[in-house]
């Protein structure tokens, strides 16, 4: 099991109360911040980008701890996701808020990494497809390689907001393109 290879960044993950969302405000705030760390740590280790509010999700790591015999309720899972969205570590993918994209790196961090790669590898002022950024050989050794389209788009939009790139909409998501500007421009 994947959860066997992963070890939690906090020892609290093994304590039963960690799996009950605490009613006292200050304690709950602290607990949710610890959960945020745990989820980001797990998703980074597993290269997981989405969390569904579902029993299947709640039954698997990191929301289920077989050793402590505890698992989160769906309500608890939703509270953690809401907290992550609130703190910029996730975004709801649907109106019903049943699927969340996890930002184990915040979009600004992804944007910075992508721009650094573009400028380091001489891709400034030329157009790249989003597909080549995600799947291309040039980015194979990059952290953002394999990033889902939705998250990549959000990162590039952040870059666009800084005036460092421009996104071109293609006929399909694979044909979307981006042009990186040199910082002087």
């Amino acid at each position: 099991m994947e959860s066997n290879q992963w070890s939690s960044p906090t020892e609290f993950w093994d304590l039963p109360p960690f799996f009950t969302i605490q009613p006292t405000d200050a304690t709950r705030e602290k607990q949710l911040s610890l959960w945020l760390q745990v989820v980001c740590h797990y998703c980074r280790a597993q290269r997981q980008y989405f969390i569904d509010i579902s029993e299947r999700m709640a039954d698997s790591a990191p929301f289920h701890n077989a050793k402590a015999k505890r698992k989160l309720t769906l309500d608890g899972l939703r509270k953690i996701c809401s907290y992550m969205v609130q703190h910029g570590h996730g975004v709801w993918m649907d109106e019903g808020q049943n699927r969340m994209a996890v930002f184990w790196r915040k979009p600004q961090e992804w944007a910075a990494a992508i721009y650094r790669w573009a400028s380091d590898s001489g891709h400034l002022n030329s157009v790249e497809t989003l597909f080549s950024l995600r799947e291309g050989d040039d980015t194979r050794d990059q952290d953002f390689h394999g990033l889902p389209h939705e998250i990549l788009l959000i990162a590039l939009q952040a870059l666009e907001g800084q005036g460092k790139a421009q996104i071109f909409r293609g006929s399909s998501s694979d044909h979307d393109g981006v042009k990186f500007f040199s910082q002087a421009a």
């Binding site: 039963p16 109360p17 799996f19 009950t20 605490q22 009613p23 006292t24 200050a26 304690t27 607990q31 505890r70």
Partner: peptide, 9 residues
């Protein structure tokens, strides 16, 4: 618990 000394399971 309300005073932050205890937590519940």
């Amino acid at each position: 618990e309300a005073r932050g000394h205890l937590v519940r399971d």
